[in-house]
Design a protein around this nucleic acid. Structure first.
Lengths: 346, 346
DNA sequence: CTTAGCTACTATCACGTGTAAGCTGTCAAT
DNA sequence: ATTGACAGCTTACACGTGATAGTAGCTAAG
């Protein structure tokens, strides 16, 4: 008897609180409860009734059950950021956080998923989460897009149509490279190098950044930068810098300044230069990208391109919301999204 | 007429493929389809029928609709890692990726959520995702745990009961600090300092790591390390090192070696030492933590403690799966999870 | 010949929600 | 006095799935 009662109690307490419970508590029908809680338009509900419902819900601690709501409405309140598997800088946290903040205000919950190239895992993401909105750092492939459409995802950025047009990652990438080159040019350098990392996962992004530098050079009539790829160690970096000198005597001038794909590559270059007895910016100016915390502790302190991740995150989030409303927002990089942090190395 | 037909077609094609469609295609009832696709035990289904169902499902490209399944079964196939808002090192990607890989094999999809202290947003995470399993880098508060229980989440790590016992983050933290101190002691140092970052979000983790160093010193009968907190710049670091010398003459010996909370703090210390004309490890040995890419490019190259993130991620994932089965796994740090990377600075 | 048991399925309920459709009572307009 | 409109509700269906409780047909034991 006692145990029976406890079991019944257990059962009741374990069961989730549903709108039926709220309706019973308020002495109304479930429909009315739903109308009140969702502010359903086209319903006339007196303030007294409204309060009765709200207080009953509050009293019972009611929270609508998302899967049921999604099943019924076909829309979930989940947004997903698909992050590339390349090492996340500290800047990513801020980016995601601000985006989450904006989306949260619209009732969306943001989660992130690191994509490692396993297409199967990515495909399951759409079906198990059924997100309302998805943002990816790189353009999606047509297969991925097909899967998402099939899963009923309406807001996807970057959008399919733009895949020819440079967007998202590629766009920012270009912007970063352009800014790096422009800074060096402004400093009087006329012959540049661009150094990429040999990490294969970074190839695409590196290509984008390098292209930005190429454009910046072209814009002022300079020859395109020499592009080198190095491993992330001092020796490899030293070899690259020496190769420029050697190649120079033959046909054209050696670069006097170098854009690094990111700050880590830049640090490697500085380390390589130290091996060779060279110093920045006198012998070779070096500019990095991303402004990692260690950049300011380098010898010499590293000049770099920083991005205003928070702003970018917020803008992406707003664009997603606009896409949810049926719009087709553009993700163009605005001036002020990225800027040069001038220290010593360039 | 023509338009009507197109609309109907549109409607049919937009609608998602359900098990009803598969049943119709296979000429069977929906129940049979469900039995086959879920390998429901206790059902006798001839191979011919089974194939009929599987082929129909394949032909139509059927994928079960997660919200409906969750609504029915009460369990979703989502796992969430709640990440702290402190800057994520490159190591985190590997950690999450390996965990995702293990969970994926068990049919779970892993997503991550950065927690910035906004409790409301975190609370909504449980209700909008209804995850089956949750892992947090720090112990959850009782309020958070209550919310999760209410949302019906069964697998939570670190578990509530262990919150007194040092787990998870705190545990690893201690392990890192201990390893740092042990390395310095092995090198013959008898007086240590521990330098924390003034970034408030890192306070808890820093405390944990410092405690590990305290324990290591106590274990061999040494005085506990002097604990200093610095801002992430060279001047602040230089001030700290000088303060040790000044304080030393008064009562006790000045530290000859320093554990940094992480590599960035270590780089700041090296930069500060450079300002003072000191060099590592001769004047002061420095050991960092996390092994960021820039550590090897420091002058001198930084000795640090690295963690085997992939292994750790896989273990956490397995522990979550065990918790899902009703077990209560422990998350103890194993030898080999973290190790010293000896370079030059210590 | 009945009955029990097995195979191979089907009918139907339950999960919790949103909402269209309908129902009752009141009050103003005709 | 009848109609119509409207406020303020309720009833009932649909979303897609998993699983329980069956049922029709067949075989074999009694």
């Amino acid at each position: 008897m006692r145990q029976g009662a406890r079991l019944a109690d257990e059962k009741r307490s374990r069961r989730r609180v549903t709108s039926v419970d709220v309706a019973r508590e308020a002495g109304l029908s479930r429909a009315t409860v739903s109308f009140v809680l969702n502010d359903t338009p086209g319903q006339s509900i007196p303030e007294a009734t409204r309060q009765r419902v709200l207080q009953a819900a509050e009293r019972l601690g009611y929270t609508p059950y998302a899967p049921a709501r999604t099943l019924r409405s076909g829309r979930s309140d989940v947004a997903v950021f698909v992050l590339p598997d390349w090492p996340q800088g500290p800047t990513m946290t801020e980016f995601v956080d601000r985006a989450a903040q904006v989306l949260s205000r619209a009732g969306l919950t943001l989660v992130t998923h690191v994509h490692t190239g396993d297409e199967q895992r990515l495909a399951r993401l759409w079906t198990t989460l059924t997100p309302a909105a998805v943002f990816g750092m790189r353009p999606f492939t047509s297969v991925e897009l097909a899967g998402m459409r099939k899963a009923g995802i309406s807001a996807i950025l970057p959008a399919a149509e733009e895949s020819g047009h440079d967007v998202s990652t590629t766009l920012w990438a270009k912007g970063v490279g352009r800014l790096q080159a422009e800074h060096l040019i402004r400093k009087g350098h006329t012959r540049l190098a661009y150094v990429l990392s040999d990490e294969p996962r970074l190839a695409a992004l590196g290509q984008g950044r390098a292209e930005g530098a190429v454009e910046a050079c072209a814009a002022v009539g300079l020859a395109p930068p020499i592009v080198s790829t190095i491993a992330l160690d001092a020796t490899s970096a030293a070899e690259a810098t020496e190769s420029w000198r050697d190649g120079a005597s033959a046909c054209e001038a050696a670069p006097t300044a170098v854009c690094a794909y990111n700050d880590e590559v830049a640090l490697a270059i500085l380390a390589g230069m130290r091996m060779l007895g060279l110093s920045a910016p006198a012998d070779l100016a070096v500019i990095g990208a991303d402004d990692i915390p260690g950049a300011r502790f380098a010898a010499p302190p590293l000049t770099t391109v920083a991005q205003n991740s928070g702003e970018l995150g917020a803008r992406i989030a707003k664009a997603l919301l606009e896409a949810l409303e049926g719009g087709s927002p553009d993700l163009d990089l605005l001036p002020g999204d990225i800027h040069v942090v001038e220290r010593v190395s360039a």
